[in-house]
Amino acid sequence: MLRIDHLVKTYGDKRAVDDLTLRIAPGEICGFIGHNGAGKTTTLKAVAGILSFDSGEILVNGASVREDPLSVKRALAYIPDNPDLYDFMSGIQYLNFVGDIFGVPAEERQTAIRTLGDRFGLTSDLAQPISAYSHGMKQKLAVISAWIHKPKLILMDEPFVGLDPIAAHLLKELMREHCEGGGAIFFSTHVLEVAEKLCDKVVIIKQGKLVRSGTMDEVRGDASLESVFLELEE
């Protein structure tokens, strides 16, 4: 589903991502772990086609981000760490905007909005302007907008920040359901317990370089993910 080969991204003299290579197969939830400034957001943005990169290759569902960015973007959804959405729209206007951009048929869209809105308890607030939303409500709206067009790959940057425990639980359920349906998820997190429980695969990055990757069992062995991570960071 996602193939990153020798990705390099520099900001001036600094190599934010340095020769990163990884694979995520359909049905996998992959956790992306690293300290602040390790290059997680840069990598996710490069995969989403928001950031250009210096060298390497990124393929999503077989399509190259460089060569065929529109096909790649059609196949994925991206949720940033801070969901800055269109404050001038209401929740429903934003969802319809995303639905139109991704060509989601009206009926299918309404069903998805109703189902996801109800699950997250956001339906009654959809007529409200986004400017009146709390951080958590914006995060929920961003999650719904990501799910309504049924992407194959979902990229999320710290998706649990700002979500209440019920919404966080729901999101984990959704992530699992998405992968059971053949999709894949690549998300960054600092909450190692969540990664440990949720992920099939984990990628640890340090100063832009991949330091460990594999299935959860391969990476942590007999230890906890936290102890492995702390050991690698030393």
Binding site: Y86, F88, M89, S90, G91, I92, Q93, N96, F97, G99, D100, I101, G103, V104, P105, A106, R109, Q110, R114, T123, S124, D125, L126, A127, Q128
Partner: peptide, 29 residues
């Protein structure tokens, strides 16, 4: 608080969605 009531929607094109977004941004400020 304005409570959301589901209404029938029509699927629009990418161009029209982008235009409506620009119009909404302009008229909301």
């Amino acid at each position: 608080k304005k409570v959301y009531r589901e209404k029938a929607v029509r699927q629009g094109s990418v161009r029209s969605a982008l235009f409506r977004k620009e119009l909404k941004r302009f008229t909301s400020s």
